[in-house]
């Protein structure tokens, strides 16, 4: 488990992280979302001991990460801006990882490279941008680290590769207790991968929840009643948003579906449809509740 307490970091006079608190459960895929400059990369760099924090603590399985080589063996970080040694092939890069990580599995890397059709002996500089990302990802995965940090690494991968990567990660999490933390400024990139989501805004976690909870607790309901009606007729529901066009109303309702389904059926509606929301729509409505404009935040 990763526990972050009162973490602060400034670049000169600009405060990037401000007393940030966060818990990331072991064995989950945690998606960290935020606008550009929100501090996502800074947070990952501090967790990985690349940058020094100004204050606060970062505990991984109750151990402080700063200057802790043993603990860093259990962490791997793939930054947004990828780096490969000049002129190196994937094989050579893998050897570097192998030299640094005790649990690095070269055979597994070769297997992954085969799946992704990456030639081990071609210089990485000759690969496309997407292939370079795949190289970084499989090198990181082959380290068998307990905690993997991917900074916008999935952004820009084509759907086929993305799907493959998802499967690889899923397999990884099945066989080993791996925790994955990934960031993106695009919610769509994370919604189908992550178990948990955190929204980083102004140096702190503004909103945090399990994806399943989000998806099963909030619905879009289209309803039409025989008589005229308004929002007040549904006062037992937790309505985040209500819009009525003609005789049909569209509501965003938060709560257990079973409970309010019965409640709505009791009103003998002419039309009653339950629609699933995209994660982005859920975030928009949740932000509105908190008093933020979604576009400001992401």
């Amino acid at each position: 488990m990763i526990e972050i307490r009162n973490l602060s970091k400034s670049y000169g006079k600009k405060k990037v992280l401000d007393k940030l608190n966060c818990n990331i459960k072991t064995g989950s895929i945690y998606g960290l979302i935020g606008a550009n400059g929100a501090g996502k990369s800074t947070l990952l760099r501090i967790i990985n001991d690349v940058f020094k924090r100004d204050e606060g603590t970062v505990l991984i399985d109750d151990v402080e990460i700063e200057d802790n080589e043993e603990l860093k063996q259990r962490l791997v970080f793939v930054p947004d801006d990828l780096y490969f040694f000049p002129g190196y092939t994937l094989k050579e890069m893998a050897k570097f990882y192998e030299a640094m990580y005790k649990k690095f599995d070269m055979k597994y890397l070769e297997e992954l490279a085969k799946i992704l059709k990456l030639d081990l002996n071609v210089k990485i500089q000759n690969f496309s941008k997407g292939m370079k990302r795949q190289c970084s990802l499989i090198c990181a995965i082959a380290t068998n680290a307990d905690y993997m940090f991917f900074d916008e690494t999935f952004d820009g991968l084509d759907p086929v590769v993305r799907n493959l990567m998802k499967k690889i990660l899923a397999k990884q999490m099945e066989t080993k207790t791996t925790t994955i933390i990934m960031t993106s400024h695009n919610l769509r990139e994370l919604e189908d991968i992550c178990d948990n989501l955190g929204l980083l805004y102004k140096g702190g976690i503004l909103f945090e929840s399990e994806v399943d909870t989000l998806k099963t607790n909030i619905f879009k309901v289209q309803i039409s009643l025989k008589d005229d009606f308004s929002e007040k007729d549904f006062e037992k529901l937790n309505i985040l948003n209500f819009k009525k066009t003609g005789s049909v109303a569209t509501m965003i309702v938060k709560g257990e579906k079973g409970e309010y389904e019965d409640y709505l059926k009791e009103k003998h509606p002419l039309i009653l449809d339950f629609l699933t929301l995209t994660l982005e729509e859920i975030f928009i409505y949740e932000m509105e509740v908190l008093g933020y404009e979604f576009n400001e935040v992401i």
Binding site: E69, K72, Y83, M100
Partner: peptide, 18 residues
Amino acid sequence: FKRKSIDFIGSMPINRRN
């Protein structure tokens, strides 16, 4: 002297002292 390589090397399992 390069941001990219700092991320890469800095995140490796070796601390600054070493």
